[in-house]
């Protein structure tokens, strides 16, 4: 699905990713954990194509294509989806219009015809249920005046509508109460299949109780310093990141 090799990225003079290696196959769920400032969000931003970062070294192959050469929109059209940590409010653009435009541009990229209004609305109705999103919200402006939980549910709703091959969920659990977390996780689980993959970026183990990962990676200072199964997440939760910090701080110096 995606193969990341020796990825280095900086913002201005500051190098944030310092050689990431990661291989994600179809059907897998990977969790990337790490303390604040370890580069988790940078990784998701670089993969989605945010212009603020410079990739200085390394390569990323997404379904056999060079991801780093693609524009942000082409990455999405190829099936990469980023659920934002902070979904953007866009007053004046209705959720529905936004999704229809996105869906049809993705379809056009794959030389498919526009979805009919009827099929589109049927799809909206079906996918809304998945994240228990209030029908009223889909007619409102994108994320405008949504609560934190509604914004996150809207991200998963969009994911359900666009049906990506690889979904990167950037701190989707942050700011969610336990009920909202369960709804979001439930949505993500239902969307899982043998043909798609998920990368969960999170600070806490909590989300992983609901979305069980096949692999857990610990990111620290721009590198993956430890990988393991789901038990690694529990270990981190119990011990905190301090041990990792001590262990790799000394390697640093």
């Amino acid at each position: 699905m995606i193969s990341i090799k020796n990825l280095h990225a900086s913002i201005g003079e500051k190098e944030i990713l310092r050689g990431i290696n990661l291989e994600v196959k179809a059907g897998e769920v990977h969790a990337i954990m790490g303390p604040n400032g370890s580069g988790k969000s940078t990784l998701s931003s670089v993969l989605a194509g945010r212009a603020d970062y410079d990739v200085t070294e390394g390569e990323v192959t997404f379904n056999g294509k060079n991801l780093l050469e693609m524009s942000t929109e082409d990455r999405a059209r190829e099936g990469l989806f980023l659920a934002f940590q902070y979904p953007v409010e866009i007053p004046g653009v209705s959720n529905i219009n936004f999704l229809r435009t996105a869906l049809n541009e993705i379809r056009a990229y794959h030389k498919q015809e526009d979805l009919s209004a009827k099929d589109f609305l049927a799809m909206v109705k079906e996918k809304q249920k998945l994240v228990e999103l209030d029908a009223k919200l889909t007619n409102r402006s994108v994320n405008e005046g949504f609560s934190g939980g509604e914004k996150k549910r809207n991200e998963i709703f969009q994911m359900a509508m666009l049906n990506p091959k690889l979904a990167i969920l950037d701190e989707t659990d942050s700011g969610l109460d336990i009920d909202a977390l369960r709804i979001v996780a439930n949505g993500v689980n239902k969307l899982k299949s043998k043909d798609n993959a998920t990368i969960l970026i999170t600070h806490y183990q909590r989300l992983l109780d609901y979305i069980v990962p096949d692999f857990v990676h610990i990111l620290y200072k721009g590198r993956i310093v430890k990988s393991g199964g789901k038990e690694l997440a529990l270990e981190m939760e119990a011990k905190g990141y301090d041990e990792i910090k001590r262990e790799f701080e000394s390697v640093e110096s």
Partner: peptide, 9 residues
């Protein structure tokens, strides 16, 4: 960026 990240040109 948000719109483009959803596939909109």
């Amino acid at each position: 960026f948000y719109l483009k990240a959803r596939g909109i040109g």
